[in-house]
Amino acid sequence: MMFRSRLYVPGNQPRMLINAGVYGADMVVLDLEDSVPVAEKDSARDLVAESIWSLDFGRSGLYVRINSDPDDFVLDLGVLNEKCNGVLLPKAESLEIVELLSGLLAKTEEAQEIEPGRFIIVPIIESAVGLENALAIASHERVAAMTLGVEDLTADLGMHRKDEDALLYAKSRIVVASRAGNAAPLDSVYGNFRDEEGLLAACLHSRDLGFEGRGAIHPNQLDTIHKAFAPSMKELDWASRVVEAARAAEAEGIGAVTVDGAMVDPPVVKRAERIIDAAKAPGAVLDLDPVPEEEVAE
């Protein structure tokens, strides 16, 4: 399951739904929340449900961003079928709401004879309370990834800036809570879809912080996101040697091993394995090197 890129598609726009699967996003997110006016929620549910049945979303994982109010998301879950991989839960603030949603997803899986646990939950943290409860939320067994919603979060925190420096604590908190809860940390969207250079810089910063992917509001952002989150050839070479050395050490019963003069311990092996997994991802751009070689950590 890859999370490098997630393309948000308004659930009430037929033109955008039709093409959603052709761009190669790791996640296509059919949106029933903020991009859909309240008066059109019912119409969007019908359209999203029919599109899921009818359209081919290619290699993209298929997700639905449901509404945050349980009275609404009960209705939203009616669009899911076995082609879907999960839901994004906006304004997630507590483990209780995740547990409520998980129970409803279990019933949906049972009713449609879908393998239990297929539908994952990706909570979107958008408030101070949510940020404080991020570890509990990320620890739920259905939560495979977690992200944040910058607009609502900065408003709730009373922040006057939304740049990367101002958001450093919140973003790092998401990364730490996600990793501690065994979920993939995903960064928010980059709002200016015409600023490719700014997007690349933002994605590389996301990667530095520990995020595994970034959201997209426009298909033309996807190549840049994939480029930023793909491992470089030098990283891949390092990761391969680390994993090989660790395996050899384990086979020989040796406790400590070094690669390029640096100690290889379990966290280093884990990081190397993540790099190899990323390199195996469909669409990974391995012939490009988004990170200057001198910045590659060893």
Partner: peptide
């Protein structure tokens, strides 16, 4: 110029409304 799935969805919505 709607595809079939769009027509089906719009019909269901209009009838329910």
């Amino acid at each position: 110029g709607a595809l079939d799935f769009v027509l089906r969805a719009r019909l269901r919505t209009a009838l329910r409304r």
